[in-house]
Design a protein around this nucleic acid. Structure first.
Lengths: 349, 349
DNA sequence: CTCTGTTTCCGAAAACTTTCGAAAACTGGT
DNA sequence: ACCAGTTTTCGAAAGTTTTCGGAAACAGAG
């Protein structure tokens, strides 16, 4: 089998004259007037070679079409690896994006390693020495120190669904949060709702802010006033949904529809409605965001704004690989389109 | 610098007697009665080594703590890597187990790579040549050819929640499915239910069978007959829950409680109840299995049998590492205790 | 200028990997 | 059983990489 594998390599490019041996380190070493060891070091990018010697040897290697054995090897061992880091639990949101990354990686013949964000002063350099070519951070916070460590190590970064606002130093992939918030709100308005509340994630999160703005824009376009109490922040958790919905429903003028910042919050809202004897969607309409598994298996199935999570994962991986290849990107931030998916948690007032 | 880097390695584990040289391929080759070349091939996962020879050499390499030069380069590169494979989507079940694996790996300083089950004749060997030391398969099917490829490559395998019955050739980690099924059914019986149905996953799945048996055992212990129509199989999906519940509820004598094979099925049952105007738990009690996020964020929150998924992931990782170190295991199959978690989806008749 | 580290660069030797041919073990035939 | 072709397995030799020590260049202190 090894013999069969090798054959394609032989036919590559300008072929060596029949009978002539392949160029060896020894030949080059002789011509360059250095030892074999030194030539080997040049080939492998070791540091202990004088710049002048290095370039002289490199020139000879080129001239004689030297091919290193590692390059002759089968592609398997040479597969690049990208690291994917996620903080905290592997929630459905992260899991689906990760699924998209793995799919794309399988297709491209790339390995994927996963980990929690590492600590310690050397973490970024350690990743490089473990053979990682790029880093994809999913919904992670990144501090200047974090970015600096990556820069130092020369490890390119792509952030999937960045928590912060798109920063020119950082490459990121995200959904069209504004458009999604707008579409969700418009859907509720179209059903005749006017008292629509927004119950979202952390106020600092860029994604959350964009969704709020989309919501506001739709409300204003319809000329519907938005009481301050109708916009609430919290975490992207079930708990926030349960508690936030309770507060909203206790308002003197409670909303007839809630637009939740993600599916998990939406489920919390549904649960609070249930404990209070309110039926969804007859008594309260709920819209989620993300369209994770959660939305599809909920009771009732959730109307939600679909994020193309798998595609986003794929784009993130491809972007990471392009950065690893030293390509310059024309755009630092890519947004993929969201889409409203209407299911059973929304109904006319 | 190189000299300084090496020193920490010297102090690791059972130290080599002072003055003694590091283990070399030549030493191992001599012990094994083969050539240096053959030992090198084993280290690098090359194909042209007989399985018997390979395992004998591997054993000696381990016993003498051989460290490949590529691993000596930096201490970071020496971190072992385990591959985790999962088929299909990254469902909450798989995601939580994966979370447990990553946690344990972080603690132990091990790298985790993830992928879809690979194809091709060389996949297992490729994993070895990419530096993987063990493989954890999550709910994957494994064919004889699959096992054979691993054996050939000398890559140890741990299956998490095996689909097949525990096989003496395969090391596996799973929950106490029988006890879980028994506890769930007893809980329903204790609430006064007598017409209890089981709606589970694939009939061939070992986990499903054990849950059914637990259910049957509890019913028989109480002297409650189980009509054949009360036991249904399908997939571990929402769809199966929706459809199966519809069939069960159309029975002449419909059940008052459904024990579902997992949380996703349980949610399907809840949804069918809802569309028929039945309230859970007042009109129908539902018990799930797994206690994934799904159970906690459902409406109503699901009574379910908790699997210690994170712990199972941790055990799987530790087991995989021990196998990679050549330890013999006293037991081929480890079962971790399940626990009934009572929430709001069950109530007295 | 001399002495004493310190760093850079190189190569000999040792360690390791790959190639490739040959023997052994299978394949199907007759 | 025997034979010709094929595949598997292995090791010798060739090729390559790593280790480690030493020479030369460099840098400061006396």
């Amino acid at each position: 089998m090894a013999t069969v594998d090798r054959s394609p390599t032989e036919g590559s490019g300008k072929s060596v004259p029949a009978g002539a041996r392949r160029t060896t380190l020894a030949a080059v070493a002789h011509l360059a007037g250095v030892s074999i060891a030194t030539v080997s070091k040049v080939v492998n990018g070791r540091s202990d070679v004088a710049p002048e010697t290095r370039s002289r040897v490199q020139e000879l290697l080129r001239r004689h079409d030297y091919v290193a054995p590692v390059d002759r090897r089968t592609e398997a061992a040479a597969r690049p690896t990208v690291e994917v880091q996620f903080a905290g639990d592997l929630k459905p949101y992260v899991a689906e994006a990760l699924g998209g990354i793995v799919d794309a990686a399988t297709e491209l013949g790339v390995s994927v390693a996963i980990s929690q964000p590492a600590r310690g002063p050397r973490w970024a350099r350690d990743l490089v020495s473990m053979g990682r070519r790029a880093l994809i951070a999913v919904t992670s916070v990144y501090t200047p120190a974090y970015l600096d460590a990556l820069m130092q190590a020369g490890l390119p970064l792509v952030v999937l669904d960045p928590l912060h606002l798109p920063h020119s130093e950082v490459n990121s992939v995200g959904p069209t949060n504004f458009a999604g918030g707008f579409a969700a709100t418009q859907h509720l308005l179209g059903l005749g709702h006017r008292r629509i509340a927004y119950l979202g994630g952390p106020a600092i999160a860029a994604a959350n802010q964009a969704r709020v703005h989309g919501y506001r824009a739709a409300m204003e376009a319809r000329g519907t006033p938005v009481p301050d109490a109708y916009i609430r922040s919290g975490e992207f958790t079930f708990q926030t949904g349960v508690l936030g919905a309770a507060v909203l429903l206790d308002l003197p003028s409670p909303p007839t529809a809630v637009f939740a910042g993600n599916d998990e919050i939406a489920l919390g809202v549904v649960e609070t409605a249930r404990t209070r004897g309110l039926r969804v969607p007859q008594d309260l309409s709920v819209v989620g965001f993300d369209d994770t598994l959660l939305a599809r298996v909920a009771s009732p199935p959730l109307t939600t704004v679909r994020q193309p999570l798998r595609e986003m994962g794929g784009v993130a991986l491809r972007t990471a690989l392009r950065l690893a290849d030293g390509e310059k990107l024309e755009s630092h931030h890519v947004e993929l389109a969201t889409e409203l998916v209407v299911r059973a948690s929304t109904a006319p007032v």
